[in-house]
Design a protein around this nucleic acid. Structure first.
Lengths: 303, 303
DNA sequence: AATCTAATTTTGTCCAATACAAATAATTAA
DNA sequence: TTAATTATTTGTATTGGACAAAATTAGATT
């Protein structure tokens, strides 16, 4: 079949571009027709072959569009200008010293130092503060730095791996209480960000709730099937700011309709930061603190 | 935009079906034309609306096709018969008692019991044997059970999460030696399986190598950039058996060409199990034991 | 000015029909 | 048997067109 080697001498086919930029094939073709960008090379059989610079510009475009820019206005500017636009909207304020020190080690590629300072922060502050302050702060700063192209992709990968290691270590060493409520934790297909999910899990574990963590990208129908199997009281879905708010709300609503009335549905994460129309019967959590209150309330109601 | 509500009275649009079944829109349309299935309802604007039974049958088809059946031969059989086909090809031999006991807890949805028995196995056997015997065995059995449709998707997700927790916990608690070699660990875009990668990392950590773990799906160009930044001696790529052997070998070769001569490239994982033509300058590891030998050899050569 | 409403433009997704190469199966030759 | 050809199946890509939801602009009313 046309498993077209994905890459031919530095050129990427349309499937590879869809995968790496998150822009659908249809959209790539329609942009080409409408705006004249990206205008890829062609292989012997008229197949599109995109260059690396084109991919990089596509990534910048996606970031800007996610941030409210309109495609028609920016597609034909050059990469340098797009980068300028991005850094213009990056927050300039410096991170607090505690976080800056950790970031500095990451950017110097001092892995052991980075690891140790994370561990130390966890020991010193306890799980709850570590998650809500250190990890949340690092996340935000790294996200912005990535937007601004200030940080290499492999550094971001490395960061993500280590924070996962830390959080999962914390979760494992938490005593597994069989206490109520039983919370199912996952994200919907398309949402690949794991750290937000792990942060939620860590906080829930610290609060003594029992967690059914399914990782990322569980199809809605499987969530529905898992609820009776594990006797779940609350389903928490996490949406990073990479996902659109509309998609997040639609997913929450669809799940709400599928689940029994007495199973709660909570949504959390950056995509829902400024949501207005909340689907009926769904609770939006705008912070981890809010989640702790919601947990408290659930326990009072079900005492 | 056509963000078509994803669902309308129990009917799913083509984007939702692609998301939940993993079959592309193009493929759904071409099956409809060629085989007459799935033949969805239509909305007022000729848009396809699939029913839940159609989605379920599509999933069965995907399982069978993954297992070597050909679409043309099975698309038009009914769901009951497909289910029969699936259970027919399930491996009948039972897993060893040690592993069967753990699996039993997972299938009973006894999360705490499952977690504890994993922890106990780790304590009792030590990291190395835990990884090479317990986790490898569980992986294989769960993979087969998944193919055979014997296990729910959410159970597999849950399994993956817990094994990740265990392995990452083990990695974190390993004393971080700054010893040589420095090994960069990741997979190429398209390869999402994390557990194999974590197994490798756990073994390397236990052997006292320093690891630069980048998680899954790092673009080749970023791997290349990470090598000088972290002073990497060896790059290990992991390929699960979900990926084709040809793609794995092509990726290894491409990376080999990009890296300096004295940086080693090792490949591991199910996709390479019976590879013959090995790209020049690449070492294939067919087991975790082989990797330990390779590590040993590297250390002798660079003593 | 500020707020609401209606017209207009922009934009993402979907459709039909077709083409083709890689993967698989069937056939033939050694 | 094994190896090499040929035929069939199958997944991915193509063009060009259509349309509704979202976003913007223009217009009317407080």
């Amino acid at each position: 079949m046309n498993t077209n080697l994905e890459k031919q001498g530095g050129l990427y086919n349309i499937a590879a571009v869809e995968r790496d930029t998150g822009l659908s094939k249809d959209l790539l073709r329609v942009w080409e027709r409408r705006y004249g960008f990206p205008k890829p090379e062609r292989d012997q059989n008229e197949g599109r072959l995109y260059t690396l610079p084109q991919m990089e510009k596509l990534r910048l475009l996606r970031l800007l569009i996610n941030n409210g820019h309109r495609p028609g206005k920016i597609v034909n500017r050059d990469s340098a200008e797009l980068s300028r636009l991005i850094s213009a909207q990056a927050t300039e304020r410096a991170p607090p010293a505690e976080i800056a020190a950790i970031l500095d080690l990451l950017l110097r590629h001092d892995i052991d130092g980075f690891r140790n300072s994370l561990l130390q922060a966890l020991m010193k502050q306890g799980l709850l503060r570590f998650v809500t302050e250190i990890v949340a702060g690092l996340n935000q700063w790294i996200g912005e730095a990535w937007l601004a192209g200030k940080i290499a992709i492999f550094d971001e990968h490395l960061y993500s791996e280590h924070v996962q290691n830390m959080l999962r270590n914390a979760i494992v060493t938490q005593p597994g209480s069989g206490k109520k409520p039983c919370v199912l934790l996952t994200s919907l297909p398309g949402e690949k960000h794991r750290i937000g999910l792990l942060m939620v899990e860590a906080v829930l574990a610290a609060e003594g709730a029992s967690c059914v963590a399914l990782g990322t990208e569980t199809p809605i129908i499987d969530i529905k099937n898992a609820v009776p199997a594990y006797n779940v009281d609350v389903v928490v879905l996490s949406f990073s700011s990479a996902m659109t708010q509309a998609a997040a709300l639609a997913g929450l609503e669809e799940l709400r309709d599928l689940l029994p009335e007495d199973t709660k549905v909570w949504g959390s994460g950056g995509a829902l930061r400024r949501a207005r129309k909340i689907p009926h019967g769904v609770l939006l959590l705008h912070s981890l603190e809010e989640m702790r209150y919601a947990l408290e309330r659930w326990r009072v109601e079900h005492a």
